[in-house]
Amino acid sequence: MSVCIDITGLPHERITFGPSPLAELGAALHALSEPAHHARLHGWITTTNAGLKPELADRLTEADFLWRSTRSDILLPARPRATLTEELDDLDRMEDEKFVGAALEISCASLYSEGAPSPLVDARMRERALDLAAARGPRQAAFVRRMLADPPAVRAWIRRLLEDCEDAFFADTWARVRVQLAADARHKTELLRRKGLAEAVAAASPALTLEEDEKGVRVVVDKLTHGRTTAAGSGLTFLPTAFGWPHLFALHAPGWQPVVQYPVHTPDLGAGAAPVEMVKLRLEALAHPMRMRICRSLARGSYTTSELADAYGITAPEVSRHLAVMKKAGLLTTQRRGRYVLHQLDAAVVARLGSDFLEGVLR
């Protein structure tokens, strides 16, 4: 499976490598909310979380569906700017329907590639968004209700939140990483100019390849998901990130310019010991194709059985059987929230099995 970005006929001048403060802030916020995904950032995560004022930490928890289990497309700008303020200004110019539809990517995104209508204008999508938010707890359900009722007010609230993050910790962080990211982007741009796009994308990530045949030319992103989009008429943007590993994001929603966010570092995951029989049980549990696909969602966040069934087009009992196998192997954590039971992959356990698999499901 993969995400294919058709670039047939796209001139190289419309393929951009560049750092984005908004995208990097989104990656940093994800790392703060999911530290198990980012073992090598342990020191930064611990220090930053400890330094957050309670009021800001509370607001971040309220809005974390924007970056926790998936990265909202509003956090991946197609036109990277020099400052966060400029990128937030660009975001302010986006129509409410598009902004809200992208902001509420809080499910397994089963409708992402189909270009589902915005919940602001479609009653079915509105009910779906509210139902999925309810599984995340009463605070997020209330937040989504407010967003649907008064988008301008909530959009202003989100902007203030991101600006407060810049004041609290991100300005210093961005000052440390932006030089490195700019240098990486310049290097990829020079590769594109001198050696061609195939060399540039391969240098960005081994999970990126350029394919060309009688059907056209496309950038292929190796991920445990399927999607297709075109860069014709818009362009293609690559955003380097110092906080992103092991994730490799590919914005491929219909009507959006494609964006790929790629990590510039390789981690050093520690090793652990487990009984051989348990390792065998875990490898057998992960070998099933459907369970591998389910892992892609559970590695990013907590999901209910019904959400997974909806995302992968199978019945809830089938999902339950797969989850039971994975739970027996010690691969899952579960928590009850009201009438919902949420399941999540234990990233630390999977990391000990193999960093290649963990990187694959977290791309």
Rank of each mutant, 00 (worst) to 15 (best):
S110C: 10
V3P: 00
L239G: 09
P263T: 11
G233S: 12
D131E: 13
P317K: 07
G354T: 02
T48M: 10
S107R: 12
L362Q: 15
R136C: 07
M147W: 09
H252G: 04
I106G: 03
A27Y: 03
G51L: 12
R93V: 01
Q180W: 02
L52T: 06
R228N: 10
W157G: 00
L76N: 10
E163H: 06
E87D: 13
L210R: 08
A324F: 05
L181Y: 04
D167F: 04
I158P: 03
R363E: 10
C295W: 09
A57T: 00
A133S: 09
L331N: 11
L345K: 07
A57Y: 02
A198Q: 13
V259F: 04
A232L: 14
A347E: 11
L286K: 10
T304L: 03
D346C: 12
T46Y: 09
T230S: 15
L120T: 06
H42T: 15
G360M: 13
L111H: 14
D131G: 11
A324G: 08
A57S: 14
R193S: 14
D346A: 14
N49Y: 00
R336T: 15
H187I: 01
I45E: 15
L84R: 06
T83I: 09
P35G: 08
M278C: 05
L132A: 10
G43P: 01
G18E: 10
L32F: 11
Y112K: 02
K328R: 13
A57M: 00
A171H: 12
L323K: 03
V177M: 08
G338V: 00
M147V: 02
A135F: 01
L323E: 01
A23M: 11
P77H: 07
P19R: 10
L56W: 07
R300C: 13
A135S: 15
P117G: 03
G101D: 11
F170M: 05
V144P: 13
D150A: 15
L148V: 07
W44C: 06
R194H: 09
A351V: 01
L308N: 00
E199C: 02
C165W: 07
R68V: 00
S33A: 15
V219S: 05
T333C: 09
V144H: 06
P275K: 14
E199I: 00
D64N: 15
K215E: 14
Q335M: 12
V3K: 04
V221K: 04
M326C: 08
W256S: 01
A299K: 04
L162G: 04
L84H: 08
A274S: 12
D222I: 02
L239E: 09
L75N: 01
A316Y: 02
I158N: 04
H252C: 09
R128W: 14
H187S: 07
E163M: 13
V279M: 10
M278Y: 05
G43F: 10
M326H: 08
V319C: 08
A182N: 03
K53P: 06
E105A: 14
S320W: 03
L66F: 08
L331A: 13
P240F: 06
S107P: 02
K188F: 05
L25W: 03
M147R: 04
P19M: 13
G18I: 00
S107W: 08
V264K: 01
T16E: 05
E97I: 05
A39M: 08
L197K: 02
R40A: 14
Q180S: 12
L197P: 05
A134P: 03
